[in-house]
Design a protein around this nucleic acid. Structure first.
Length: 565
RNA sequence: UGCCCCAUGGUGUAAUGGCAGCACACCGGUUUUUGGUACCGUUUGUCUAGGUUCGAGUCCUAGUGGGGCAACCA
């Protein structure tokens, strides 16, 4: 009986890699490829979103890890939907994520001439024909998934006639839609994509790069694999919906006898409480539900950037999400975790009060003030400290005071004692209410010997409150965000429109917030942690437009309090 | 009534025929001048049925469930 193998005493924990990396390692080990070359091939017809970030991190990350190359290629074969605006936005988003396309930048439109040559080559070898059927006739002729298609009446045209017709198509002798070029494969093939796919159509549309040079454009299936091949892409990584296109991808490469790029598919990213398709995102923009593609509630890269996400956090998120072929829906909280994980280490702390009421320290001398040092980041002593002005009248958070509270309430209330962060311990005395019953001021006494850093009072305070000195406070607008949809799967209801599930509270604007004076020098793109409140970033656009500070909250701090007090 | 892909805790993802592990979430505890962080701990999983094997999450067969495929879109 064979003994079970003994595990090596000190085996290095083998690095576990996903199935795509496994293929790459095998190809490198077997010598199939001396080096690897990937590409990221967006169509410039919209803004990149977090799902694209996964694809970007995959293709760029693999090139980086295996010392290979990666191309950025704009798949621009449908001029009606594409534009330079999107090209620019895509470049900016990929760069912002921290990636360089070291293999170069390309456009499928750069290959139009070469692709045209491939088509001629196919015709010459009897592998393509010009079809004069209408789109409806072609669709009908394809059959259904369970029923074989029928040959087009034009399928057996002589090569010479096909050559002639195709050159007329290119020369503009035929009106739009009059005829198409089709690959001649198998109208009864079990894979619908192999039933003589259309590979060129006539379309008199102005192309954002080639202008009016062409009136025929190749279809995706005839452009993508060949473009990969032209660029020497070894591993062409794409999402699962292209799986059924792979036999066609391979067929063109084999039939044309060109460099065999290999397509490998992985499952696309889905996030709960949002939608990810360009069509649906576009609807949110067009119906004015959000401000634009870069609205901080959008799952777009530009939206996340404006919301206050960092490239590092998005890359971490993509690593955690993993790569597999299984359909998946990722918790939004994983994205939030990734941001907190990064920002907790690097974000400078500051104090801000979103819903201010006054705290008056009755026994603090009128007219006196002092500067108290406060750590910029407790996780990073090298970040140093800053001086916080402190005096008799401060702002504290309305929700940090309660007229009645039990033992679990660590904040201010009758009978309670709290520490003011980086300052003194104070004890409740009384409070004043306004005409409509709202608390306006809380009065406390402070203990002079409880000063932060030199506390000899011996008094213990369970809770610590953040505060801002009234005299020196800066006013700011703060925008708080929540999930755009209240339903975890807004587009998962067959009988309901996803717009029915919009979260009415996805945006909260707080207009008279008070922030510490040092924040007046803050710059956009540098996230801060507002003590006890979360991570905030200056909104560049809105701050510029309104002339006053506007802060976006990217995410709250994790809240471990159960709210039982 | 076709073809292709997939199935591991609540959510993701490992285990390459040999101890089902990790992260997020959840719950509990310790520390704490952020009810944060850090640290510790609890609970929870191999779709079903057969088969191969000393041994199956892994291989085979069938079933079930989910996803995809019929644009002159990508």
């Amino acid at each position: 009986m064979p003994e079970p193998p003994i595990r090596p005493a000190d085996a290095n924990e083998a690095e576990s890699v996903h199935f795509i990396e496994q293929i790459i390692q095998d190809d490198l080990a077997s010598g199939k490829h001396a080096s690897i070359h990937t590409r990221f091939p967006p169509e410039p017809n919209g803004y990149l979103h977090i799902g694209h970030a996964k694809a970007i991190c995959l293709s760029f990350g693999i090139a980086e890890k295996y010392d290979g190359q990666v191309n950025l290629r704009f798949d621009d074969t449908n001029p009606e939907k594409e534009s330079q605006e999107y090209v620019d936005a895509i470049r900016r988003d990929v760069s912002w994520l921290g990636y360089q396309w070291n293999g170069g930048e390309y456009f499928t439109s750069d290959y139009f001439e070469q692709l045209h040559g491939f088509a001629v080559q196919l015709i010459e070898h009897g592998h393509a024909y010009v079809d004069h059927q209408s789109p409806e006739e072609i669709a009908a002729g394809k059959g259904t998934p369970t029923k074989a298609g029928e040959d087009s009446p034009f399928r057996n045209r002589p090569t010479e006639e096909n050559l002639q017709l195709f050159s007329e198509m290119r020369a503009g002798l035929h009106p739009d839609g009059h005829c198409v070029l089709r690959a001649k494969i198998d109208m009864a093939h079990p894979n619908m994509h192999m039933r003589d796919p259309v590979i060129y159509r006539i379309k008199r549309a102005h192309h954002h790069r080639t202008g009016d040079d062409w009136c025929i454009y190749p279809m995706y299936d005839f452009a993508h694999g060949q473009s990969d091949s032209i660029e020497g892409i070894t591993h062409s990584l794409c999402t699962l919906e292209f799986e059924v296109h792979r036999p066609l991808y391979d067929w063109f490469i084999r039939t044309l006898g060109i460099f065999p790029s290999r397509q490998i598919e992985f499952a696309r990213l889905n996030l709960d409480h949002t939608v990810m398709s360009k069509r649906k995102l576009l609807r949110l923009v067009e119906e004015g539900v959000v401000e634009g593609w870069d609205d901080p509630r959008m799952p777009t890269i530009s939206g996340l950037r404006r919301r206050g996400f960092t490239p590092e956090s998005i890359r971490t998120f993509c690593e955690r999400v993993g790569i597999a072929k299984r359909e998946n829906v990722i918790d939004f909280s994983l994205l939030e975790w990734a941001l907190r994980e990064h920002l907790n280490r690097v974000a400078p702390r500051a104090m801000a009060v979103l819903d201010p009421i006054k705290l008056v320290i009755l026994n603090y001398p009128e007219g006196q003030s002092e500067m108290l040092p406060s750590e910029n980041n407790p996780e990073d002593p090298s970040a140093g400290t800053r001086e916080m002005p402190f005096s008799k009248v401060l702002y504290i958070e309305r929700e940090d005071f309660k007229e009645e509270a039990n033992k679990k309430w660590f904040r201010l209330a009758p009978g309670k004692t709290v520490r003011l962060k980086s300052a003194y311990i104070v004890r409740y005395l009384d409070h004043i209410k306004g005409p409509n019953g709202q608390v306006e001021e809380v009065h406390v006494e402070y203990f002079p010997d409880s000063k932060s850093g030199s506390d000899t009072s011996g008094i213990k305070a369970k809770g610590t409150l953040h505060w801002v000195n009234v005299e020196t406070a800066e006013e700011a607008e703060v925008r708080l965000y929540d999930r755009l949809f209240s339903d975890p799967a807004p587009d998962g209801h067959a009988d309901r429109d996803f717009m029915d599930f919009l979260n009415p509270d996805s945006l909260q604007v707080r207009s008279r917030c008070m922030v510490e004076p040092s924040l007046a020098l803050a710059r956009p793109g540098v996230p801060h942690q507002f003590t006890r409140l979360g991570y905030f970033t200056l909104d560049e656009k809105r701050t510029k437009d309104t002339g006053h500070m506007v802060w976006n909250r990217a995410v709250t701090l994790k809240d471990g309090w159960k709210g039982q007090g």
